[in-house]
């Protein structure tokens, strides 16, 4: 057990190191940051000055080490366009994205786990067919189209919720539902199949045969055992969720990291892109690490895989 956790942690560190490599080299070498920083009127001399200042005239591996040294201290450099520390720009927007993604994940879980359970228990019934149709269509629907439809139906026609913006719980409803529905199908499918797995296990049959009430069998025994793969899946869905948040935030003018990242990529504001990508990747990796370790504690049969 302990060796597994140590191994997993070491692997996480290595992964993090690779993430820094990719983030740095892909961006820093792709375009000339000095040109991006300087105004359109800058002369070649100005550019040389900026390059010297940033250390861009040194060999690449040294640049990377310098960059890494600063990143470890939480310094991603200054935003070319925002003229403030990139890390601060990301931090300011973190709460909005957290609200959105956590609520969306909540909605996805609340909808998909019961639906997946029903589908599994009533396998082959009309309900099962409906649930799987829902799952398939959920996956086949472009997220932004769904979001705009929600705006038109619930914002413009029914006037139930504000169309866009940030601040009150009412503002959260449409974006969170959009993102939740986007995340739902995969979790729903998994719930259904893990439940089918569990329900066919001997101990469930035994429990049923012993006359344990049906809801107890379902909620106490089956759910507990089906929960492991679901926990792992939720961890793995985080990247998808954050990707979806990028689109959702734009549709609903939601002031989160996703919009910042898109704006920064397009304007070539690389310190902010690096900060966003690094932090998101590190966060998602950490969550997966935690999920792995939690599952390993609950179910020690799982090895390092």
């Amino acid at each position: 057990m302990r060796t597994y956790i140590i191994k997993r942690l070491l692997n996480a560190l290595l992964t993090l190191f690779l993430i820094t490599l990719l983030t740095f080299f892909f961006l820093a070498l792709a375009k000339d940051p000095a040109r991006m920083m300087a105004g359109p009127e800058a002369s070649e001399e100005d550019l040389m000055g900026i390059r010297r200042e940033l250390g861009l005239d040194r060999p690449v591996h040294l640049q990377y080490l310098m960059w890494l040294g600063r990143v470890v201290q939480g310094d991603f450099g200054r935003s070319y366009v925002g003229k403030t520390a990139a890390i601060n720009m990301v931090a300011e927007r973190l709460p909005a994205t957290l609200w959105l993604t956590v609520t969306a994940m909540g909605i996805a879980l609340v909808l998909s786990i019961p639906l997946g359970m029903i589908a599994a228990v009533r396998r082959g019934s009309l309900v099962d067919a409906l649930v799987s149709a829902l799952g398939v269509s959920g996956q086949a629907m472009p997220l932004f189209w769904f979001g705009i439809m929600l705006i038109i139906v619930f914002g413009v026609n029914l006037r139930l919720f504000p169309v866009s913006g940030y601040g009150t719980p009412a503002h959260l409803v449409l974006p969170a539902v959009t993102l939740g529905v986007y995340t739902m199908p995969v979790i729903m499918r998994l719930t259904r199949s893990s439940f089918l797995d569990v329900l066919s296990q001997d101990y469930i049959r035994t429990a049923k045969a012993k006359g344990v009430p049906r809801h107890l069998v379902l909620f106490k025994h089956a759910l507990r055992n089906a929960a492991l793969p679901i926990v792992l899946m939720v961890g793995m869905q985080l990247g998808v969720l954050v990707g979806g948040a990028v689109v959702t935030e734009t549709v609903f003018s939601w002031p989160g990291i996703g919009r910042l990242a898109v704006d920064s990529v397009v304007t070539g504001d690389f310190p902010v892109v690096q900060a966003t990508v690094m932090l998101l990747a590190a966060a998602i990796m950490l969550m997966n690490l935690v999920a792995d370790i939690v599952v390993a504690f609950i179910d020690p049969r799982i090895h390092f895989h």
Binding site: G239, G243, V247, V277
Partner: peptide, 12 residues
């Protein structure tokens, strides 16, 4: 490698 790629939000 898989762990690393899995951590990047695809759209970014």
């Amino acid at each position: 490698l898989i762990n690393m790629m899995w951590s990047f939000p695809f759209i970014l």
